[in-house]
């Protein structure tokens, strides 16, 4: 029995060895390098390998960092809110209204945006939202406006719209799966015990869908904080987020220790917020269906 277990373990290790090696090489190693860099001194174009906490002190004291980090968190929170709120009805429709034979087709339709590269999609939003873009010229042709609307490009609104669209499928899928798992007789039981459809949704469907909502929120929140392309293109470079700031330190200023310290700090903040979010919702995540 023991030898059987051992050979099974060996087999398992053999199976995961290639992806594990790959993950160590391209994920763990660079992360450790960044972590190491963040404690080194900057010697203009070189890195001086001497331990220091100076980078972190500078980051935490820097008002620009504060502003950009807060903006990143704010944009990511808005995007998460918009995406989850808009994705929920889609997932609900998919789970409750679409007939079982057609669900696969609907899921396929939802993944269509992935057929185009992220960069091109972001650029298309620029075309849609731009000063002479689809929306402005359309509204002007219709005679509804005389001057182009300016609040839809090169600002936070535009970034939220773009990112919410880009991440929508990532939010729809986990919510859809959580809704699919709900035993439909629970909803009938809710009605049977005297609750209207709306109250049954509030007291039964929503709490049981929360694991999907939490997953969707994290899946959207974590990558959007570090998004680089959208602030660069849609924000017009004038409203940078944390990824743009790291890029500036790393490449434009060639201050790798400072860039690394920014990256590590941002990572820690995201980790803390994510864990806090999970902790707040832990009673929903413990439910075993």
């Amino acid at each position: 029995m023991a030898s059987g277990n051992r050979s099974q373990t060996a087999q398992g290790l053999t199976l995961i060895a290639p992806p594990l090696g790959y993950a160590v090489l391209v994920l763990a190693a660079p992360l450790l390098t960044i972590l190491a860099y963040s404690f080194f001194k900057d010697g203009y174009l070189t890195v001086i390998r001497e331990f220091t906490l100076e980078n972190y002190r500078t980051v935490w004291a820097d008002p620009i960092f504060h502003r950009i980090m807060l903006r990143s968190l704010g944009v990511a929170a808005l995007v998460t809110l918009a995406t989850v709120v808009l994705a929920f009805p889609v997932a609900y429709f998919l789970s409750f209204a679409v007939s079982p034979q057609k669900k696969a087709m609907w899921l396929f339709l939802i993944t269509i945006p992935f057929w185009t590269s992220y960069l091109i999609r972001v650029f298309l939003w620029k075309v849609i939202l731009g000063y002479n873009g689809v929306i402005n010229s359309g509204l002007k042709t219709l005679g509804l406006i005389e001057q182009p609307l300016t609040f839809i490009l090169y600002n936070v609104n535009a970034m939220v719209i773009t990112l919410a669209h880009a991440y929508a499928p990532f939010a729809i899928l986990p919510i859809f799966i959580a809704l699919e798992k709900i035993d439909r007789s629970l909803l009938e039981a809710g009605r049977d015990l005297g609750e209207s459809r709306a109250m049954t949704f509030w007291r039964v469907t929503l709490p049981l869908a929360m694991p999907g909502v939490v997953a969707a929120a994290l899946i959207v929140f974590i990558p959007t904080i570090g998004d680089y392309v959208t602030p660069a293109l849609i924000g017009g470079g004038k409203i940078p987020m944390i990824a743009n700031m790291i890029q500036a330190q790393m490449l434009d200023l060639d201050n790798r220790p400072m860039g690394s310290a920014l990256a590590v700090t941002a990572m820690l903040i995201v980790a803390v917020i994510s864990l806090a979010f999970i902790a707040v919702n832990r009673r929903f995540l413990r439910v075993r269906q």
Binding site: D183, S185, L186, A189, R191, D192, P207, V287, Q289
Partner: peptide, 20 residues
Amino acid sequence: VPANRRPTNMVFQSYAIFPH
């Protein structure tokens, strides 16, 4: 009269106990 206003209550085959 919708289900939630009927003077009936049901024990479901699956029991439909709310897991949360």
